[in-house]
Nucleic acid binder design. Sequence first.
DNA 1: CCCTGATTCGC
DNA 2: GCGAATCAGG
Length: 232
Amino acid sequence: MSWTEERIEKLTKMWEGGSTASQIADELGGVSRNAVIGKAHRLGLKARPSPVKANDKTDVSASPAAPKVAKPATPAPEPKVAAPRPVVAAAPPAPAPAPRVAPSPAPEAKPASDAAPAAPQPRIVSVGPGGFLRQGPGDQQAPIPPAPPRRLVPARPSPEIADKTSLLDLNDRICRWPMGHPGEPDFHFCGEKVNPGFPYCVEHCGRAYQAQLPRGHRRPPPPMPFGGPRVR
DNA sequence: CCCTGATTCGC
DNA sequence: GCGAATCAGG
């Protein structure tokens, strides 16, 4: 198996979504867990709470002595400038270790720091002949002030109501989980907002991506939407 | 034992 | 670049 665009993308999303390398591996198929990890590293997207990374303490003095037990396989004396591993020192509060199968929360860390609009600096603006605002040479291009002029639309918080999500309504942001059976008059799609990185909403991700039981005794019958294909 | 991710190193 | 082998912590 080669790393095609799709496979790399899936790997990336799942990896960032908190899936384990094993899950990703047999989700992709044809690759081993090691292959996934190796690829992930090569892609530059590691950095995830690893069980084998002992968090280093800030207090070096209290450390008794050299805990370094380098194995003889790599006895390189390395007369270099030291600091072979510039490990990040202060990053102990690792992000929430995502649950095994439900990477849903994806808190999307928003700094949302300063820049409070509550403190508008006095700016000098003048109105031009046509009514447009004249700007100083340094401040053309306002940050991003205007409120999104979106059009109000009757909220449709849950599927079913009013219009149903048809095949034509599908896009990358709405849940594609089928509701009903194809051919039925009321067949449609879920239409909820997707769980970022997945083709389904959070709820249906839970159905689509079942808990990965330990290898060996995995549930044979894969979950199908609503009992699966209708038998006629 | 199982799991995990990290790293190494021959290909 | 790839991934099996290996390491190492939980």
